[in-house]
Design a binder for these strands. Structure first.
Length: 428
RNA sequence: AGAGGGAUGGCAGAGUGGUCGAUUGCGGCGGUCUUGAAAACCGUUGGCUGUAAAAGGUCCGGGGGUUCGAAUCCCUCUCCCUCUGCCA
């Protein structure tokens, strides 16, 4: 959520930056907010004045009654009746105005950082860098959804989509044998690496309440993307970002606590309503998948350095996995609602001949912190912190790329770094 | 799930209708003393809103009510604890 006082002082800049991400009603919305804000402040002033008078009278009534001066007490009491009526009216109008202001304010996305490229769609994202050579596979190379059926020759499909359909439905694959072991190897590898980089591991709940969903920005408008449990109004987490960042909801940290660095492995659940179509075969898009997520909370002046650090960290993982990758800086139109700047990491999946997003690393600046009321003390004042997070990494597409890129006539070779974690070198 | 008891400032814990945003202790911060530290002593120490700074307003789990006045009384919701039951 944008900060109202910033909006008050920087109307033009806010509108310009919102337009940068093709938020078309920017000007209209900002002006509505500012109008509500002016009204709100006037009402607040009126209400405060009335209540101050009312409070003074109440004290006086107490005094008079103690003195036994019934008459004076009664006269003061008569005056409060009128004040009370006025206060009620101001109060109701104030509440209505605040609600109206808030309803518009929460629909405004975050302001894009100055370095965010202009652009409306994914086509206009900026390729920051590309690393590694793209494998040149023979024509007979298979996409991973065919490869998984072919291996393991001994135990059957290492990722079984049909079986998952039987148990649940499309998008819930079953990992078996070496497929399951590779997943576990990846999780352990990612967690160990994060720990070495100073991230403290968290095992959060996989089910969250409405307040948590609001804190990180999934609610109110993305509730259709989460699985909902109506009996208790809970949601299955779409990412570990939600429970981990919400650990710091309503928290005031000391400077000495910063930066906060957390890592968590969780399954993630996404309804992906409306996003099925071409290019979603196999592991490319799932309703349930595993992900290791890194989260940081830091001082505003450090957050862009932290973002770069997180980007370097994730790139390090991809290099260790020997996967060709590229880094994108998302354009204004493609960025998530809550982000100020996002880097996407894509690996090259050689049989599909496609780049697959395996990580998205974002700086939310104060957008989430404002909703979370996540602050710290600096020179005696409380100030909003900055939050960041990134996948490190999402498993299915990493697995897809490993399977496709490393296929040989003798089987699929695991990257060296994973072999000790998996306990085998090759799927055959 | 049933019965009972709770929810107060970073923590502990008073406060049962009126100068209570809240006694006190611990912790934190600043100071005196000390070569330094500890101890002792003195001072200070909530959030939000508002202002140039004040003043003022608001908040004692959430919401609603009674009253001139509510942390305190009433209703309701949520959560926690104890006992009983069930269960990985």
């Amino acid at each position: 959520m944008l900060q109202l006082n910033y909006l008050r002082d920087h109307r033009e800049a806010v509108i310009q930056r919102l337009k940068h991400r093709f938020f078309l009603t920017a000007e209209e919305d900002v002006d509505r907010i500012l109008a509500f804000d002016r009204k709100r402040r006037q009402l607040q002033l009126d209400l405060d004045t009335t209540q101050a008078r009312s409070n003074a009278l109440s004290k006086e009534i107490g005094q008079r009654m103690k003195e036994g001066n019934q008459e004076a007490a009664e006269s003061a009491r008569r005056e409060t009746a009128e004040l009370k009526q006025r206060a009620r009216e101001w109060g109701e109008e104030l509440a209505t105005t605040e609600k109206a202001l808030y309803d518009v304010l929460v629909t405004l996305p975050n302001l894009p950082h100055a370095s965010v490229p202009a652009g409306r769609t994914a086509e206009e994202n900026e390729v920051v860098l590309q690393h590694g050579t793209l494998p040149d596979l023979p024509e007979t190379a298979l996409p991973h959804w065919d490869l998984v059926k072919q291996y393991d020759r001994k135990t059957g499909p290492i990722v079984d989509f049909e079986l998952g359909t039987k148990i649940t439905g499309a998008g819930f694959p079953v990992y078996k044998g070496k497929g399951a072991r590779i997943q576990r190897a990846l999780v352990n590898f990612f967690l160990d690496e994060a720990q070495r980089a100073g991230y403290v591991e968290i095992q959060p709940p996989l089910v969250i309440n409405r307040d948590s969903g609001f804190g990180t920005g999934q609610l109110p408008d993305k509730d259709g993307q989460m699985y909902h449990i109506p009996e208790e109004d809970f949601f299955l987490i779409p990412t570990a970002e939600v429970p981990i960042t919400n650990l710091y909801r309503d928290v005031i940290l000391a400077s000495a606590d910063l930066p906060v660095k957390h890592v968590g492995y969780t399954p993630c659940f996404r309804r992906e309503a409306g996003s099925w179509g071409a290019h979603v075969r196999g592991l490319n898009r799932l309703h349930q998948f595993d992900k290791v997520e890194i989260v940081q909370v830091c001082q505003p002046e450090h957050s862009y350095a932290v973002l770069e650090e997180m980007s370097q960290y994730v790139q390090g993982l991809l290099r260790k996995l020997e996967l060709p990758y590229r880094v994108l800086r998302l354009c204004g139109g493609d960025m998530g609602f809550t982000a100020a700047l996002t880097y996407d990491m894509e690996v090259y999946s050689a049989a599909q001949k496609r780049w697959l997003e395996v990580s998205s690393i974002s700086n939310f600046e104060t957008y989430q912190a404002n909703r979370l009321k996540l602050r710290y003390k600096v020179e005696g004042k409380t100030q909003l912190l900055h939050t960041l997070n990134g996948s490190a990494l999402a498993l299915p597409r990493v697995l897809a790329a490993i399977l496709e890129n490393n296929q040989t006539s003798e089987g699929i070779l695991l990257p060296k770094i994973l072999q000790p974690y998996a306990g085998f070198e090759k799927i055959d």
